[in-house]
Design a protein around this nucleic acid. Structure first.
Lengths: 225, 225
DNA sequence: CCAAAAGTGTTAGTGATACACCCATGT
DNA sequence: ACATGGGTGTATCACTAACACTTTTGG
């Protein structure tokens, strides 16, 4: 800016990385890809790629996500921009990290699009990661917890219809602690975030739980816990 | 990443912009600079500049701030990265915005370092701004309010010794609403964020208020209101 | 003695937490 | 009939919000 010609500076590369979380099998999962090029060949990494010169950062994030997972309509928000000059050993790469939430029923991973592997890993039991991706993931996990406390993003991890226990499990898995069932239901109902359906979940070996649907209020920021 | 050569992509320019807030004269102020080059020549803008190839983003932000204001030791945090391809009419520029808080007694603006003017503006009465700087500033103001609610950053707007009324004014000015004096003091004291000194503020045309100092606890995140 | 801000407690209401038993279904 | 999770209410405690008068100084 001011006095300089924007074209004459030595420019860093800019990538987006997307930390995609889901809750499945009673566990918090993160999507990782296996690198098939150096540096860090054969290590697991957060999916991402270069920002094209004419696309916005969010477009780039959505595009990468679609390429890796074939999902649209995820909850997506910018997480943080990591710019340590040494974070990529080859050249200066600044990465804008996004974090995303999906209900994993919504889609199936592409059966390995490129040569590389794609897989879900437990956020609580991760392999070694390429670059500074471990610290990016740690940061994403903090942000996820924070968001769950102060907003209604948890609902983006659920299908259209769900039981209150499903919802409670989301919180328990991500906060890594148990919550009181009665207080939880009282809170959720008093906030008016859900509406009853007339449906019940079937084929369960116990009293069938009522199914609920998301209410419009979701999306507004509401303090939850 | 993966399969591509990082050096062969067309690269955007990357800048940092720093939104520096202070509270003075019973008002919330933002530091702006007047541009002396196109585009947007002679318009006011958020101070910032290009990231050098071997410095981190935070280093770049600190450097820019020092160049503009000759202040060190400000509260500084990354705000958001703006990357709309059209935000700079010349070329693709991605900007990593930081927001910063200072106690304005701590320093004096350099008497116009470069050719350009530097000045404080009321956050509630801004001139037209260059680029997308108006929306960056709006976003910064939201973040500032959020931070004041959930953390103790307000203290970084105060000198070493201050009265509880000084502190309350910070909140009132930034939230743009009045707070109850007794409840406010009760809250601050119960959180143990301040310690009494034996000093009183002098030369005031009323009962002299006691001066307080910051306690170590500040810096931990504490929910305030 | 007047103006101006400092300083100080109590009450009522609201929301958070802790806690235990009966119910409906599948096997 | 047993196992499994579903579903419900009450009492206590802590925090929030509303509110008015006396004190100390300078002018």
């Amino acid at each position: 800016m001011k006095g300089y010609d924007a074209t004459k500076f030595e420019r860093p590369s800019v990538t987006v990385d997307v930390i995609l979380f889901t809750v499945r099998d009673n566990d918090l999962k993160v999507l990782l890809v296996k690198r098939n090029v150096d540096p860090f060949k054969d290590m697991w990494a957060i999916p991402g790629g270069f920002v094209k010169i004419d696309e916005s950062l969010e477009e780039a994030a959505k595009r990468e996500l679609l390429e890796e997972t074939n999902v649209k309509d995820v909850y997506l928000e910018q997480l943080y921009t990591f710019g340590n000059p040494k974070r990529d050993p080859r050249t200066r790469v600044i990465t804008v990290a996004y974090f995303a939430l999906v209900n994993s029923e919504k889609f199936k991973l592409k059966a390995s699009t490129d040569v590389k592997e794609v897989n879900w890993f437990s956020a609580y039991d991760l392999p070694d990661l390429a670059f500074d991706h471990k610290s990016i993931l740690d940061y994403a996990l903090k942000r996820l917890r924070w968001k769950l406390e102060y907003t209604t993003v948890a609902f983006s991890l659920l299908p259209e219809e769900f039981t209150l226990t499903d919802l409670q499990k989301i919180y328990e898995i991500i906060f890594h602690k148990e919550l009181d069932k009665r207080n939880f239901r009282k809170k959720i109902k008093s906030l008016g975030l859900v509406k009853e359906t007339t449906q019940f979940k079937e084929d369960v070996a116990h009293r069938p739980p009522k199914l609920y649907a998301k209410n419009k209020k979701i999306g507004e920021i509401v303090e939850i816990f």
